[in-house]
Amino acid sequence: MESWRSTPRVFWAVFSAPSFWLVAFFLIPLSLIWAYSFGEKTGIIDIAVTGTLDNYIRAFEPVYLQIFTKSLWIATLSTLICLAVGLPVALTIVYAPPKAKPWLLLLVILPFWTNLLIRTYALIAVLRTRGYVNFGLEWLYDQASWLFQIVGLGGLGAAILGERFEPVEILYNNGAVLIGLVYVHLPFMVLPLYAALERLDRSYLEASLDLGAGQFQTFWRVIVPLAMPGIVSGLIITFIPTLGSFLTPDLLGGPDSTMIANIIERQFKSANDWPFGSALSFMLMYLTFGALALRAFLGRGRSSGLEA
């Protein structure tokens, strides 16, 4: 690493273009909506930046506050589900035979290379009332009632299973949003967990087993505490995009599955209240920064004992 003064020409050559881009096409647009968030609508598309806090005050009205808490709750829940699934998956891949390992890892990464919209669309096709999950359930229903018929308990079968198959409403509700968020973000969780567990010396696990701990005790007392920085990373990395997700609640959710991003979109696309939309955007951003700060804070507390 050298001081920029030692070769100023090279420094300016690599500094100017990206910095210009970041300022012109990122920071200025963001500053613009930041300014808008303190503004008022004066016409159909005219906005006067008056320094008012009304937009932020409005965001704390119960209707919106409820959407915020609900978004946080759904994001937290789906992140935790990702963790519960991701930990055993990452652990298994870390200790897979060397030949199988890159392939298993590829299987985890591959969905990243598939368009998010296509994946969400694929999920719709599977989950809708005339979709494959319901198809599978109907088949199970048919088999079960047929079994009841055979043993001569058709009446009992109908009583237990119902007269005819009723498709389960999986799509267009909060459950579908949860499934969709886990589906989309699971790889975000598995990769940092994999990286953390891969770094973990396997003799810690073996020492624990050797000292008389079973697999479960080893998992809770050794693997989880030692992988904690990776777990925190995974939680935050998954939580941030989940909290700000737009497409999943929009396409899979029902009328009561609105998340923050959906109301922001509404302000800009249909309600045409840009100042309020801008204020909501910045509230979402502050939440994101809060999550990042939490990660930095937790990371600092942990690292000292672990770098040994």
């Binding site: 990122f26 909506i33 700000g244 737009f246 991003a261 955007s281 979402l284």
Partner: peptide
């Protein structure tokens, strides 16, 4: 790190 939706509206 910032949510896509924020960059989109910006």
């Amino acid at each position: 790190v910032i949510p896509e939706i924020c960059l989109g509206v910006a």
